[in-house]
Design a protein around this nucleic acid. Structure first.
Lengths: 227, 227
DNA sequence: CATCTCAACAAAATCGATTTTTTTACTCAA
DNA sequence: TTGAGTAAAAAAATCGATTTTGTTGAGATG
């Protein structure tokens, strides 16, 4: 197709930004760990300048911390912060959901259905975790996409990334996964019938469930060591 | 004082970040303008690396846009986006205000009073605009500081910066300023008496007033030109 | 024995130069 | 006149080297 021919590959700094972002979210670094810049440079095989630009962007995004003359570190994790993130995420997503239901047109409905279908398909291959993760993210994006607020969506995305950092510490749990998946189906139905009240309650539950799972794994936090 | 002796000056990149941030917010660049990197380098007298790191941070923060292989530009301004920013800011600040009133202790009350006093003092020198602006920002920060949510405060700060970019386009208006200042005083009283309902209504009005002022100046937007 | 100093070391931040990409200006043909 | 093609110019991105700053530990000092 013609569209894909315009794939002007992005800059090294953008590529390394995405890679590092995923690696932080997936917990490939220890919480509180100091990032040795030259080690990263060798590991990812990139130059110093694009690497530093990526680190700066990640720090501004909140997935790294920058200390004055002593480089970058992965933020420590605290139960307290998880609760903050989950609580705010619930409020913002419910807000967006309401607006999305009010403003959503039939194109939105189609996208939600499509995203849900992809999510169910991804569920058939339990071994490909990352594909499911991506489909899951996209489903929730699609559900709120029609809310009409650029900034609300932006903050929700940011909170989602923060939340995922905690959630992914927890080991996979088929029972929970199954329950969450049932909720996804119900959310689609409620979207089509525009049942705002029920959908808000369900989304609240949905996040609460993930929250409590993540909470269990954050309880004994190998957090704020540094040395 | 001893505290100020620990002024380990920050890196060049942080300094230029702050400078550029203020310059964008204060409208020293045209909306939609492309930033010529080497021109900035000369103008601010900094090296390329710290400059680029600052630009990357600003882009991640949302005060600049980064296009793939063609550098950075100041975001265009749209009435539609102003409405989005103002609406979301109202919701988030009211949310934070409620929590701040519930969780605020006497230390918080003291800080609010102190910030309000500084704001009134700054008001006595109408010529020093930036001092008033800073005091104003700090007053609103102090009012919400005890809300207990790091991330909520972070998002509010970000929206505040975005909002200011629009608000500062409007010419100074003594009548409006006076009305806003009266509201600041009322907010302090409502904070001390913990009158959540009244305070939310007042804060809503407060933002709405600034919003409509900014809206007047955004109506004929010299916005998305680029050439 | 604890603490301080300072040199050697390691790491981060910055600079200057090079490489890559985009934009501009121009030529020639339809 | 217009439009495609192309070479020169400009700008952005990246690299390698240098400078600056923080850290460590041996030896001196109280």
């Amino acid at each position: 197709m013609t569209a894909s021919s315009s794939v002007s590959r992005d800059m090294a700094s953008s590529r390394i930004f995405e890679t590092l972002k995923q690696d932080v979210i997936r917990g490939r670094f220890a919480a509180g760990e100091k990032l040795a810049i030259s080690a990263l440079k060798n590991h990812y095989q990139v130059g110093l300048s694009p690497l530093r630009e990526a680190l700066n962007r990640l720090a501004a995004y909140g997935l790294l911390e920058q200390v004055n003359q002593r480089g970058f570190r992965v933020p420590a994790m605290h139960l307290e912060e998880l609760d903050d993130i989950a609580g705010l995420r619930t409020q913002l997503e419910c807000m967006a959901l309401t607006q999305a239901f009010q403003a959503g047109d039939s194109e939105w409905e189609s996208q939600v259905l499509a995203a849900h279908h992809r999510l169910r398909r991804a569920d058939e291959h339990p071994e490909r975790v990352e594909e499911w993760e991506q489909a899951h993210l996209r489903f929730h994006r699609a559900l709120l996409a029609s809310c009409g607020s650029h900034w609300l969506l932006r903050f929700i995305e940011q909170l989602h990334d923060q939340f995922d950092r905690y959630r992914r510490l927890a080991p996979p749990n088929p029972a929970v996964r199954k329950a969450l998946d049932r909720q996804h189906g119900e959310l689609v139905e409620l979207a089509l019938s525009r049942d705002i009240r029920a959908a808000r309650a369900l989304l609240d539950d949905h996040i609460r469930m993930s929250h409590s799972v993540a909470r269990g794994c954050c309880a004994s936090p190998a957090s704020d060591d540094a040395t």
